[in-house]
Simulated scan of single mutants.
Amino acid sequence: MAWLNATPRPPAESPRAKNFNAATAPSRLDQLKKDRVPVQMPPVPLPHIIQWWIETGVTGSNGMSATVLPWAEISAWQANTSIKLSSWEARLIRALSQAYVQQSRISEDEACPPPWRGAVTEAEKAAEIAVLDDVLG
C-alpha cells in the first residue's frame, strides 16, 4: 500500500527535478488508474487484521510526517470498538504500521521497485510502450 500511495520523485540532480511539484504529481496508484492498469495486490491470509489496521489509522503523525502507529492509538481503537486484540495481533498491527512508514519513505524514489509483484499484464505493457513512444517518438 505504501508503494502505491507514494508520489515518486525524480533524483534531485536530474533536470526533471527543477519542474517537479509534489502537490500536483500523481501517486503511483493515481498513475496506474490513469493508465488503466489493474492494481495487483498480494494475497492476504488475515484480512481482518488488515481491516483493523486500516481502522486504527495505518500510521501516526508527528505534525511533519507519518510515524509508526502509537500504542495509545491501538489501545484507544480497542476501547472504542470493544474489540480485544490478542498481544500478537496488536504487535502485528504495529509492525504493519512500521513497515508502511519505512516503505513509504523508500518508495519516494522513482526507481523503487514494488515490494510485491504479480504477473505483468497486457495493460502494463501497453502503458510502458506508450511512455516509450512519447519519449522516443
Rank of each mutant, 00 (worst) to 15 (best):
residue 1 M to S: 09
residue 80 N to P: 01
residue 110 E to W: 15
residue 87 S to W: 04
residue 132 L to D: 05
residue 79 A to H: 06
residue 12 A to P: 02
residue 77 W to M: 04
residue 84 K to V: 08
residue 19 N to I: 05
residue 10 P to K: 11
residue 117 R to L: 12
residue 108 E to W: 08
residue 96 L to W: 00
residue 83 I to E: 05
residue 14 S to E: 05
residue 74 I to T: 02
residue 100 Y to Q: 01
residue 19 N to F: 10
residue 60 G to V: 07
residue 126 A to V: 06
residue 88 W to H: 14
residue 52 W to K: 02
residue 3 W to R: 05
residue 132 L to C: 14
residue 115 P to G: 15
residue 137 G to V: 01
residue 43 P to L: 06
residue 34 K to R: 14
residue 99 A to L: 07
residue 32 L to W: 03
residue 46 L to F: 10
residue 18 K to M: 08
residue 29 L to P: 03
residue 45 P to F: 12
residue 44 V to N: 11
residue 96 L to V: 01
residue 85 L to C: 03
residue 103 Q to T: 05
residue 62 N to P: 00
residue 22 A to N: 11
residue 98 Q to E: 11
residue 95 A to D: 02
residue 110 E to V: 04
residue 73 E to A: 15
residue 97 S to I: 00
residue 125 K to S: 10
residue 39 V to S: 09
residue 87 S to I: 05
residue 78 Q to N: 10
residue 87 S to E: 11
residue 115 P to F: 05
residue 100 Y to D: 00
residue 1 M to C: 08
residue 57 G to L: 00
residue 104 S to K: 03
residue 95 A to H: 02
residue 117 R to K: 14
residue 51 Q to D: 07
residue 34 K to A: 15
residue 21 N to Y: 11
residue 49 I to C: 12
residue 124 E to K: 13
residue 32 L to T: 09
residue 124 E to R: 13
residue 41 M to E: 07
residue 120 V to K: 15
residue 11 P to L: 10
residue 95 A to F: 01
residue 9 R to Q: 11
residue 76 A to E: 11
residue 107 S to H: 00
residue 73 E to F: 07
residue 89 E to P: 01
residue 99 A to T: 01
residue 20 F to W: 15
residue 57 G to C: 02
residue 23 A to C: 05
residue 127 A to G: 03
residue 29 L to Q: 13
residue 66 A to F: 04
residue 72 A to W: 07
residue 83 I to V: 14
residue 50 I to D: 04
